[in-house]
C-alpha cells in the first residue's frame, strides 16, 4: 500500500497513515480535502467501490470520526479515509453524487449520530428509528439503559437482588451498617 500512500502524499496533504495489512491502509485527511482525495481514488487509482461509510463518537475530544472505506476490485485492496469533524457542528459535505449508495449511509449517520450532509437525498427522513424523540442513539452521551428503562416495560415477574444487600440478609442480618 506504500506505493499508493506515497503517490497520494505527493498530491495531497495527508494526516496519520496506518498500514493495517498489505491490502488495507487508513489515511487521515482534512474535511475539506475529502472529496478531492476520494474522487482521485475513484477515478485515477481504481477504487471504484464504496464499501462503507461509518462514524465514531470521540466524545472526550469533541469530535466525530467519519471513515470512508473504498475498494479497488482489480488490485483487491482497500483504503480507508478518516475525517475528523467538530462534534458540536456536525456537518460534512456529501459524496452521494460520486456514489448514489452513499446517500443511504449519510441518512443513517444523520439519524444515528446527528451528522448532517446538506443536500443528500431524503437526509431528513426517518431511516429506521420511527418516531424517535431522544438525542441520536449512537452518540455516546445517549443513556441507553435509562432510555430502555423509560421506554420498555419489564415482563411481569422479574425480580433482582443486590449482591451486597443479599449477603447482609444471609450472612449478618442483625448487624448495623
Amino acid at each position: 500500500m506504500k506505493d499508493l500512500t506515497d503517490r497520494l502524499g505527493t498530491l495531497f496533504s495527508l494526516g496519520d497513515i496506518t498500514e493495517k495489512r498489505d491490502d488495507l491502509a487508513f489515511v487521515s485527511v482534512a474535511p475539506d480535502l475529502l472529496r478531492a482525495v476520494i474522487t482521485h481514488l475513484r477515478d485515477v487509482e481504481g477504487f471504484t467501490h464504496l464499501v462503507l461509510l461509518t462514524a465514531v463518537d470521540w466524545i472526550e475530544g469533541g469530535q466525530f470520526q467519519l471513515t470512508y472505506l473504498v475498494h479497488n476490485r482489480t488490485r483487491a485492496r482497500d483504503i480507508g479515509l478518516r475525517v475528523f469533524i467538530d462534534r458540536e457542528e456536525a456537518t460534512m459535505a456529501g459524496i452521494h453524487d460520486l456514489w448514489p449508495t452513499a446517500a443511504t449511509y449519510q441518512r443513517e449517520l444523520k439519524e444515528m449520530f446527528g451528522i448532517d450532509f446538506p443536500g443528500s437525498p431524503r437526509i431528513d427522513e426517518e431511516f429506521i428509528l420511527e418516531g424517535w424523540t431522544d438525542i441520536p442513539p449512537y452518540r455516546r452521551d445517549f443513556d441507553t439503559k435509562k432510555y430502555a428503562e423509560e421506554t420498555y416495560f419489564h415482563r411481569p415477574g422479574r425480580e433482582t437482588f443486590d449482591p451486597a444487600t443479599h449477603m447482609k440478609d444471609k450472612l449478618y442480618p442483625g448487624e448495623a451498617s
Binding site: 441507553t144 439503559k145 419489564h154 425480580e159 437482588f161 449482591p163 443479599h166 449477603m167 444471609k170
Partner: peptide, 24 residues
C-alpha cells in the same frame, strides 16, 4: 453493564451465599 436491563441477579437452589460469593 447490561444496557437493556436484561439481567437479574437471582438466588439459586444449591448455591450458597458465602464470603466472596453472593450466591446469586
Amino acid at each position: 453493564i447490561c444496557q437493556n436491563a436484561a439481567i437479574d441477579m437471582v438466588p439459586v437452589d444449591g448455591i450458597e451465599t458465602k464470603e466472596g460469593d453472593s450466591g446469586l
